[in-house]
Design a protein around this nucleic acid. Structure first.
Length: 360
DNA sequence: AAGAAAAGCAACCGCTACGCC
DNA sequence: TGGCGTAGCGGTTGCTTTTCT
């Protein structure tokens, strides 16, 4: 018992809540709502401050809260979203119905953080802690000899198998490299049998951008459930194309990508790793999404985001907001177009748009 | 078996954003 | 426009439980 900053001179109880206090608070809020939290303690007959009542209700007494341990799916989702949002626990918790920011935060600090560290991942950046970052693999490859990796997502130990299937004689085929699941392409899950064609970095120090067309292509399959409860496996393709057609403007590149998303993709996020940034760049990301509903036909929307990409930051992530808005839709397809310029100029991106609507 | 250390987690604290007057 | 109250957020604390020695 003692004074509380937010409650003036009023004596309030602190520490753990008793079952009797929980009952009083629950009965009051279910009967009258909370209104102004500062008035709740008095009205509910509690010697607590309003802030404490609010926290107790939000974190433990709300009927919609999910009890029990986090499921493996929830765990993976937290990792995926944290990778994009960082320690924005409230935002992360919004993607986990029935879970609170406090719960997610505690779970992260007590469990997931250590798990990532044990996998050799920095829990802040989600990149490999050691010097064996996967992008370094490509540095050994000669420029213009684009390596091709096959990524096996059927691995159950959170470590996806990347298989180098390049035909290059200098890089033996089927060279296996383990990379953590969170350090490579993560555009849509679940995905299987991805094929990744990566961009290589040339050895010359004069390099200011790719001098030829390079591409990063991801092919895979996504399991979808449509509104008629039928399950289907649908192919998707996502690509980033970097073209530098003009030698006098070496800092220009355009990148386009498309990725499919659906309500069974719990992360609702798109992530593009391994964008090669040779200079700090402003990236304009224009996203067009066509959402198909069996009930209401096709809706389409378009929006633009701006990002700052830095030389040492090879990840671009965006939240697929429309899925929140259209959460009742079964399958969505998003096309994203990126326009990147090293702070110099941008190039029209309209030509790279394509019709990517799902057809049932 | 007992004490120490580590882990887990509920609760608190300080700060910020926002709305209202 | 500034002050005030409130809600919400993220970091931190400290108590309880579990594990280790």
């Amino acid at each position: 018992m003692g004074g509380h900053r937010c409650c003036g001179k009023q004596k309030v109880k602190r520490g753990l809540w008793s079952p009797e206090e929980d009952q009083k608070l629950t009965e009051h809020i279910t009967s009258y709502g909370h209104g102004s939290w500062s008035s709740v303690p008095k009205l509910a007959g509690l010697q607590r401050c309003g802030k404490s009542c609010r926290l107790r209700w939000i974190n433990y007494l709300r009927p919609e809260l999910k009890k029990g341990c986090f499921t493996p799916d929830e765990e993976q989702l937290i990792i995926d979203v944290h990778r994009i949002l960082g320690n924005r626990w409230a935002q992360i918790a919004k993607h986990l119905p029935g879970r609170t920011d406090n719960e997610v935060k505690n779970f992260w600090n007590s469990c997931l953080k250590k798990k990532l560290i044990s996998q050799g991942l920095d829990p802040v950046t989600h990149n490999l802690i050691s010097s064996h970052h996967h992008t370094k693999i490509n540095e050994k490859q000669p420029y213009n000899n684009v390596p091709v990796f096959s990524v096996d997502y059927n691995n159950n130990n959170n470590s996806h198998m990347i298989k180098n299937i390049s035909p290059s004689p200098s890089s033996p085929p089927h060279q296996h490299v383990h990379v953590p699941s969170t350090s490579t392409m993560n555009i849509a899950q679940p995905a299987a049998a991805l094929l990744v064609q990566k961009i290589t970095e040339p050895s010359t120090s004069e390099y200011q951008g790719p001098s030829i067309t390079s591409s990063l292509i991801v092919n895979g399959q996504i399991n979808c459930n449509d509104a008629m409860t039928t399950t289907a496996v649908r192919p998707y393709e996502s690509s980033i194309n970097i073209n530098n057609e003009s030698s006098c403007t070496p800092n220009i590149s355009t990148s386009s990508s498309s990725s499919s998303v659906n309500v069974n993709n719990p992360s609702k996020f798109g992530v593009l790793d391994d964008i090669y940034v040779w200079d700090d760049a402003t990236v304009e990301h224009q996203e067009t999404v066509a959402l198909r509903s069996n009930m209401e036909g096709v809706e389409q929307y378009s929006k633009t985001h701006n990002y700052e990409l830095h030389h040492d930051h090879e990840k671009l992530a965006w939240e697929m907001d429309p899925l929140d808005q259209y959460s009742s839709f079964d399958v969505g397809f998003a096309e994203s177009t990126f326009l990147s310029a090293g702070g110099v100029m941008c190039q029209d991106l309209s030509n790279s748009m394509a019709d990517l609507e799902w057809n049932y």
